[in-house]
Amino acid sequence: MSVTPANHKFATRTIDVAEFFKIVLLSLFTLLWLVPVFAAFITSFRTMDDITLRGFWSWPEALSVTNFIKAWGAARVGKYLLNSFIITLPSLAGMIFLSSLAAYALARFRFKGNMLVYFTFVAGTMLPFQILMLPVFRLTNTLGLYDTYGALILIHTAFQLGFCTFVLRNFMRTIPQDIMDAARVDGCGEFRIYWQIVLPLTVPSLAALATLEFTWVFNDYLWAIILLRSDALRPVTAGLATLRGQYNTDWPVITAGALLATIPTLFVFVFLQRYFIQGLTLGSGK
């Protein structure tokens, strides 16, 4: 890779060889990454009998969209997707609002217990969530929230608070104190500084966080299994999981449903990508 400026004559050739290797290596890696994804895509157009008869990696005998129709209709993916949104969006709003409030205080003020609270939030991100399942189920049940959207919204909001606060606090620390102090001198209340000065500056980080959290909350399914009973409320991942049988499973339909379920995530990625790229910087290189 060393291109010494002295050897101008050979420089271009060396670069070409390096470039060539880079392209070859990249293509290999890309292939390794794309083949399974592509296989999933093809599977969703095949029938289970076709796969059993000819093997998964064989050339499909026929392709059809029946699996997608089945997934959307009989497997109610459309309805489940709506539920996913009803659960995910309020959770996102809740966790981002509450954690940005907390992060603001943690980043800006020195007060007793600051580090303790921060550590509690950070340590919470390390919790294996399965540890909480039964206690949270009992709590939810006692409060009368079992089998409601609210049960899932609350646990998702609470569980992700740790990570959000951790990220936002680190980001907010990089905002120069002078800006806030200046606002203070102008007579702004603390809440207004937070709302009208700090929050707009944090938007890229918020967007990045929202993207990540969206995929996490959207793809959760264990909480939905434990905290919901009714099919009518189920989010899409849990809904798709019901297609798995005790003995027999129609994998192509599940794959088709899963692909449909990724569309919102894809949208979020595409639309928020711009922010995402600026987003999780945590102040690096500012």
Binding site: A241, T242, Q246
Partner: peptide
């Protein structure tokens, strides 16, 4: 009857 199915393992 309000019917809800979940996977056998779950």
């Amino acid at each position: 009857v309000e019917h809800s199915i979940i996977a056998h393992e779950d």
